[in-house]
Design a protein around this nucleic acid. Structure first.
Lengths: 258, 258
DNA sequence: CAGTGGTCTAGACCACCAC
DNA sequence: TGGTGGTCTAGACCACTGC
């Protein structure tokens, strides 16, 4: 064990407030004392207090509304089960049409909501075009969704299917029907055989910053999801973007026999 | 499209420096201009420049050495293939004893190195004890490793095996031999049947901060890995801790037939 | 209008490094 | 000793909220 380096005032205050939140001194939804109040109480300048609170914001522990105050966050981390979410969705085709996302949110006692905000053929971004093996200006049907848990924005999911597959099919509809996109793909002769995901963490674009109500420094999961058919052709790509503090990603796979 | 909110000076400077780095104006390993220099050049105060650079630090784009300067990071993101790394390791048992980690690092043209820094029976932390179904003060053999790529610290991996399984076996040795821990577990009647991982992102503890040379705000992957045997008993837990900016996590799994 | 947070500056003191 | 970054303060101006 080495000697501990000294701790700056703003870090100490951040630690202190973090503990207070975890111990319930400030409950979810409650407002923190104002910055001038904290400054007076701990004999610090307001910029120092502001810096401490910035740490908690970036951790997702509090959310600031300008002109109103600083509030303790209310939504607990949500479990995303990558390896069971797709089959589970299709099994529920006889039910109310709930998908994996709905189940995940309901499991936390929250109300899911989802809005399709874009649905049209486009030239996809480079990394998507590359993954789908599209060249030049070949098109893909894009479906972009904003997702909410109890009206709090928590995810942006954007998927692309090659236009050569999607054109003139039910995939062009807002509601893709029972079993969703993967059931329709199966009917079109592209039953999905396997999935891959690449998980990275990055900071938000300005658009994501606005919709997800984040600071520019708050880390996001960027999940690059590819569905492959039986011929090992990539037939769909989805990019899931979500604040890291609000999600835990779960994976499961069989061990190969030795 | 909404109207764009105005951008603060420190964010603008961060954007500017980020672009300069990506465009190669500052190459990997190069030093950025000093804070007073940047302040003079852009007519900003030093604290404002410092705040811009803090953003780049938290993104992992630069690394600061006190008294020396600010340097552009040199290690590119490393791909971790969760679903192939364990079998691959065992297939290589006839080779030089290289494991999955070694392969991942070598794939990037870097030199892997790993040090066992702890190896003893302990009472594991609560979440580990719970996952291994240990009660009270039941022990587990802990094996903690520090991992490097070309001498840069990039990961801390800590694994636990119930002491009731590990006691008096080759698992107690520093070198677990060909095929590693999972091969030894198989020989002990606990062949691994499946794996689960839960991926979260958090800020570092002070110990992690020191070893991984991070700021307190820099996000880390916290991967909670469990190996289950054929009787669905959890036989090993590993927690992988690594800076998010240095890794991309890859998963693959078969679609269940519809 | 008063209260909230967001940002910025000037100036300062400190720890650390290289010479 | 001079240069680097880390931190802090006092004071200020601004945008936004709610009354």
């Amino acid at each position: 064990m080495g000697i501990e380096p000294p701790r700056s005032n703003y870090r100490q205050l951040a630690d202190l407030l973090r503990s207070a939140i975890h111990e319930g001194t400030y409950e979810p939804g409650a407002t923190l004392p104002s910055e001038p109040e904290l400054a007076a109480q701990y004999r610090l300048s307001r910029p120092t207090v502001n810096r401490a609170i910035l740490i908690l914001r970036n951790e997702g522990l509090v959310r600031v509304e300008r002109g109103r105050g600083t509030f303790v966050r209310e939504i607990p981390p949500i479990n995303r089960h990558a390896t069971t979410r797709y089959p589970r969705a299709s099994r529920e085709r006889d039910g109310l049409g709930r998908g994996a996302f709905d189940t995940e949110i309901r499991d936390m006692g929250l109300k899911p909501r989802s809005e399709v905000v874009q649905l049209e053929p486009v030239v996809p971004p480079e990394r998507v075009a590359h993954a789908l093996r599209l060249t030049d200006d070949q098109l893909a049907l894009v479906r972009k969704r904003h997702m909410f848990a109890s009206d709090a924005p928590i995810q942006v999911a954007t998927s692309w299917v090659p236009w050569s597959i999607a054109e003139g099919t039910p995939l062009e509809r807002r509601d893709t029907g029972p079993g969703g996109t993967y059931s329709r793909l199966a009917e079109l002769g592209h039953e999905v055989a396997r999935f891959t995901e690449a998980v990275a963490v990055r900071t938000p674009t300005r658009e994501e910053e606005t919709f997800l109500r984040l600071t520019e420094e708050q880390p996001l999961f960027d999940i690059f999801h590819i569905a492959w058919d039986a011929n090992d052709r990539p037939v769909e790509v989805t990019v899931h973007v979500m604040p890291t503090f609000q999600w835990v990603l779960n994976y499961e796979w069989p061990a190969e026999p030795q």
